[in-house]
């Protein structure tokens, strides 16, 4: 399955929720949609699954030799941002209903239920009403409902919200297993540390527009204007020599052995390494990549400021 999104636009009354968005999704792997609330992620996902139609632009989904204007029925599992199931029905009744609507045979539903309830440690509670479960466990049931028919693609809007750290790790493990099975996953989330560990590709959105996309390296290249280096010596060195180098925000520990500094994104690190080594007995020299969280925040702030000036 290949998805090509080109110049997609969606407007609600006076609000342009999605503005000229373009990116593609290939088979396998995990792609993360990132952005603050109101960035247009959910609007984009709703068009992708066929709940709403774009005002302009195009979605082309190629699957098994055919082309579709949105993901074809049965080819995907969808965990929406606005989600819930029937509170006055049991876990089992809810999931059997979803399975039946997916067109699964009774035996297959039973098999999948056994597997997933066990995988999410909910087998003992299968006959309890949904309203008796904690928010986190209800969230897990939602995820099972999304995965029950073993779709080749899953779309998860905020899959980690409402989960405690233990369950976040649990879901993370399940998603990695799905990826290993070849399932394509498109997810949106706010938990940057989890997403950074999980996703292969990223699409950063703000105010309905894509502000960066690609692998983590590519995102760094697009968003980071500086890079950070860390280095240490086996004994104290004079900082005067270091300050003559092209290093910004040079900081050291009290012993004067460990340093960190910002350098230009295009700086020649090999040359800089030689210069630093000339200052003393160098033990370690490494580039420190800014966490995705920091990149995300600075990019969103900068994009929002640009949007405000534009408007």
């Amino acid at each position: 399955m290949h998805i090509e999104i080109s110049n997609l636009v969606k407007e609600y009354a006076t609000l342009r929720a999605v503005n000229q968005v373009s990116f593609s999704v290939n088979d396998g792997g995990i792609i993360a949609l990132l952005g603050p609330n109101g960035a247009g992620k959910s609007s984009l996902v709703r068009m992708l699954v066929g709940l709403t139609e774009p005002d302009s632009g195009e979605i082309r989904v190629e699957s098994e030799g055919k082309t579709y204007p949105h993901l074809p029925d049965g080819s995907f599992g969808y965990l929406p941002e606005d989600r819930g199931l029937y509170q006055d029905r049991t876990l089992k009744q809810n999931l059997i209903y979803i399975g039946q609507l997916r067109g699964l045979e009774k035996a297959e539903i039973e098999r999948q239920l056994d597997h997933w309830l066990q995988r999410f440690e909910l087998t003992e509670r299968a006959n309890e009403h949904l309203k008796q479960l904690s928010k986190g466990n209800q969230q897990k049931i939602q995820l099972i409902a999304t995965l029950l028919h073993r779709p080749p693609m899953v779309i998860l809007d905020e899959p980690f919200s409402g989960l405690d750290p233990v369950n976040q790790e649990h879901v993370l493990t399940v998603l990695k297993e799905l990826k290993a099975e070849g399932v394509t996953i498109l997810l949106s989330a706010h938990q940057m540390d989890l997403v950074e560990r999980l996703a292969d590709e990223f699409v950063l959105m703000n105010c309905g527009e894509v502000i960066a996309k690609g692998s983590l390296d590519a995102i760094h290249n697009q968003l980071a204007d500086r890079q950070q280096i860390h280095f240490s010596f086996s004994r104290q060195v004079e900082t005067d020599a270091l300050q003559s180098l092209a290093l910004d925000n040079l900081q050291s520990n009290a012993a004067g052995t460990h340093f960190e500094a910002d350098v230009d994104l295009n700086a020649a690190l090999d040359e800089l390494l030689k210069q630093v080594a000339a200052c003393g007995p160098l033990q370690e020299f490494r580039r420190h990549r800014k966490p995705l969280h920091d990149l995300y925040l600075s990019a969103v702030r900068s994009s929002t400021a640009t949007q405000e000036i534009r408007s």
Partner: peptide, 12 residues
Amino acid sequence: QTRVTEQLLTLL
């Protein structure tokens, strides 16, 4: 109100 609608609308 229990937000069942969106998920089910991708099924039928």
